[in-house]
Amino acid sequence: SVFCATHVFEPSVKSALYGLSLIIKSDFYAALRKQKLILALLDAHTQFDVKGQHADASVIILEDATPYAMIEEDISSNFIYSAAEFFEVHYAHMNAQTACPFQFSGYLTIFGILTVLRKHTPLPDNELKLALEQLTSAVAQHTALLIVEHNTITSFKVNNIEHITLLERAAGSRGLKLTEFAVGVNDAIAPFIDYSVNSQMNEGISGIHVALGDGSSGYHIDFLCPGAVFSPAPPL
């Protein structure tokens, strides 16, 4: 069984149908094979470059850090997995009291964002929700420039308009500190993706994404940079 968490992204029939269409168009086995290649790189190296037309950044992975990933052996018998697990290799840092497993610095051109709030307060902040929906639409239409310094987001501009105050307000107790670094492996959905839809399937797009927030004290927000190339950094 494969499930896609529509309810914590955009709980609508339109979003569910969009997610289902991308699931159908995805090549699960190709994505799992690509995850295996990335795991081999992570076993052999700790310093990486994120390069390409839309990115210029560096990533350092702690030597004892363990990535979340799947390979074909994981589906050799009965299973229940989220669709997201098939399409990304990622490091998460949800506990602020522990060392972050990665350190990221540089810039990414962002083609889409995703917003998730797993815990709703008794009085939801509809004004904040609307502001994030408008930001999602603006990024999908114009792209955005994300700048990160030592795991802290220092700028997020759409059409030269800064939105970092909104991000800090939305992210909750973790503020502007990154909580996730991920490599997407779902090549097959590239021609069909719609970044204006807040769908979990979008985060698997081949390339890089980073995120802030824990999804509980505030929103978890993913920043998607498709096509960015993740490769070992050359020796100094």
Rank of each mutant, 00 (worst) to 15 (best):
P101V: 05
F230N: 05
Q35F: 03
A30H: 07
F79T: 07
D27S: 07
V2M: 14
N95S: 08
I75Q: 08
L135G: 01
F192D: 12
G213Y: 07
I205W: 06
R33N: 10
P226M: 11
V148H: 02
F104Q: 02
V158R: 08
I205A: 06
L224D: 06
D56L: 14
L178E: 01
A170N: 06
I153W: 06
L130G: 00
N159L: 15
L146F: 09
S216W: 12
D222N: 05
N198G: 01
I208G: 00
K34T: 08
A144E: 10
L132S: 01
P67G: 02
Q141W: 10
P232T: 04
L146K: 05
T66K: 07
K14T: 04
A84M: 13
L114K: 10
L135A: 02
H209Y: 10
E162N: 05
D125Y: 10
I221E: 06
V148Q: 05
L212T: 00
G218K: 07
N151C: 10
V158Y: 03
Q103L: 15
V158I: 13
F48P: 00
Y91E: 02
S206V: 14
K25I: 03
C4M: 12
V183E: 03
M70A: 02
G106H: 04
E127I: 14
D43G: 08
F102D: 05
E72N: 05
K129V: 08
S216R: 12
A131W: 04
Q97V: 12
A40D: 11
L166W: 15
A96H: 04
Q141L: 13
R33M: 15
P191M: 14
Y18H: 14
T165W: 15
L146W: 13
Q134F: 07
T143W: 12
M70K: 12
I38F: 11
F223D: 01
K14F: 03
G175R: 14
T154W: 12
N159T: 14
C4W: 11
Y29Q: 09
D125M: 13
T179P: 02
L145P: 00
L145E: 09
Q141K: 13
S206K: 15
Q35C: 04
D194A: 11
S58Y: 04
T152V: 15
I71H: 05
T6C: 07
S216Y: 10
A131L: 14
A84P: 00
F104M: 11
N186A: 11
G184F: 10
E73K: 11
K36T: 04
G19Q: 15
R169H: 15
F79P: 00
Q103G: 01
S196L: 08
I221T: 06
L212I: 09
N160S: 15
D222I: 11
S1Y: 13
A16V: 01
G227A: 07
H45M: 14
T66Y: 02
F87S: 06
L212Y: 03
F223H: 03
R33T: 06
P191K: 14
L132N: 00
E73A: 08
I147P: 00
S15I: 05
S173V: 05
A40R: 13
V139A: 11
L145G: 00
D56E: 09
K36P: 00
K51G: 00
H220P: 00
G215T: 07
L135T: 02
I23Q: 12
P234G: 02
K119R: 09
T6M: 08
H90D: 03
